[in-house]
Design a protein around this nucleic acid. Sequence first.
DNA 1: TTGTACGCGTTATCAT
DNA 2: ATGATAACGCGTACAA
Lengths: 353, 353
Amino acid sequence: MVSRTSEITSSEIARQAGVSRATVSVVLSGTRSTSRVSDATRQRVLAVAAALGYAPHPVARALRRQRTGVLGFIPRAHRTTLFDHPVPYLLGIALSRAAAAYGYQIVETTTDPAKAHDGDELVRFMQQRRVDGIILDSPDTVAEVQRFIAHQIPLVQIIRPQPIETARVTVDARPGIMAAVAHLLEAGHRRIAWLGRGGEHPIDRARRAAFVAALDQHGLQCPAEWLREVAAYGVLEGYDSAMPLLAQPDRPTALIAMGDNIALGVLRALYTLRLRVPDEFSLISYDDAFAGVLYPPLTSVAQPLTDVGARAIAMLHEQIEGEPGTIAPRAETVPTDLIIRESVAAPRGVWGG
Amino acid sequence: MVSRTSEITSSEIARQAGVSRATVSVVLSGTRSTSRVSDATRQRVLAVAAALGYAPHPVARALRRQRTGVLGFIPRAHRTTLFDHPVPYLLGIALSRAAAAYGYQIVETTTDPAKAHDGDELVRFMQQRRVDGIILDSPDTVAEVQRFIAHQIPLVQIIRPQPIETARVTVDARPGIMAAVAHLLEAGHRRIAWLGRGGEHPIDRARRAAFVAALDQHGLQCPAEWLREVAAYGVLEGYDSAMPLLAQPDRPTALIAMGDNIALGVLRALYTLRLRVPDEFSLISYDDAFAGVLYPPLTSVAQPLTDVGARAIAMLHEQIEGEPGTIAPRAETVPTDLIIRESVAAPRGVWGG
DNA sequence: TTGTACGCGTTATCAT
DNA sequence: ATGATAACGCGTACAA
């Protein structure tokens, strides 16, 4: 295939400006800006470059610099449908935006996650693309993280990190969940259930603990069968776990679900049982990914994913730019917040419902 | 930053196999496979490369070949929230998958679409990244398409092309909409409304025409005020247009909405009016992007976006590989299909509701 | 059948 | 303050 665009190279700029390619490079790359090139030639080069619309060839630059400007993102779950995994989806957007601000691009793994978490498939994917750094969303195992560390690739874990010494950005569920419980209590609820993920992960445990602590703070307790744990975040999991809880007459009057997808499942259970929200039952979700677009719009604990993305990119940038070994892995935490919408009302029988 | 991975280059392979780099390149690039290298050396090179896990440096290869292996995707609307624009989102997934099969990568524009559709911003974005080809989703104007043509970049328009001579992949709404109407008629409906986008675009007009034709085929007509047109595909648009239609006593018993987001708006209007689906009103959507996850799960006309993506990539690949001028722009069309779920039932009063 | 030499466009080093 | 030169890793025309 012939050259399709009139390619403007640094040689061309050099020729027209009457200087060498080296000078053009120094002027336009901005390295050691002062005291290198005289102001006159600098202006001349700049003018010619602007006139011709010159932009350095990113491929040549990458080859020479041994740096591609590409960052790898490994989402916890692969994007398939719109509702299964809203958080990785929103993270992808946040990361792309933040990366663009630094001139980085994001490449996302496309391999099947179930398969990929075995072996070195992910490592190979990233190595072959010569990514400058990696954002690892909620890795399943320590071994997976260690593979990347072994290969010395700058790395940051986000959301649900493994307990291993790397840069990380996590979310503090506590303030949001505290506010959610307070909000329900204010509305008059005393019978509040919790539905989230089981397992041993500290992040999951912290979410549950925050709920229990919030109740405790107000002198309340939650019966064990109202602390419901599912194996994974998902619509079906929410439905299946909520159904038996809500079908009995002695049910709670409100529930906090640890994910929009779980909440959607609960919502379906409520519809099936003909329990209207919020008139007959109050519901709060976690994530605030698509809570606002459901019916009714769900009050939700928002995770500031834009922040997570921005901080992750900033940390990665530090590692990439800095001398290796210089940068101590930092751990940052961003807070959650309660977004109040229309899924909470006074429980039946309290204000005379 | 020091070299992070033990880089294995073709020189290294050559050294260990006792041949020149050229031979390694010929063997591994697979060009002119036979009659160039003896079987013995070929095997030797292959063995060494496999043993060392060699993979050619994609950046160096791109620089040499003047081809990056990157394809640009310009979605009709930028991804922001999960529900606004499900189709571009799903297209992105389909394209990435299809591209991976050819060894291409997809880079998606991140610029604000409102801004970008002016000027040469999109062209510059693509030129700077040296993309090998472009997938243009439903361009707003002919001028936008012509800019790319002027720059001789291989191009394929998808979904809602401008009437200009380029490769294209479109969707035929007719079979799906025909089936949808037939499905409603079978259930006993005779009072069926349509809600879709107005404007002059042939694709939008074809959708409406398909609906009218389907009714006509069964000797039915739709009053003008039941053919409702909105300015854009969106949740709010659907709600605002459906509300006055459904609030009156003399309303239709069923409606076909030309987008899941529009249908979601209609669904909200129905909830507001306390009209239950499908008991009191039947609803069919178009897109089948998130219809299945709503409550109730919506019967929907599915667009085979995976197909669209695969064909678009195949066409682009042809253009990129072939001699320029050799490839006549092809136009392909993929059919729609009706996915039956739980949002259609017999109208009230027909079977004694 | 195989090796040599050059160039893709850029940047870093070393002279001047 | 500036320019010549080399090198990043690969593919290919040409020579052997």
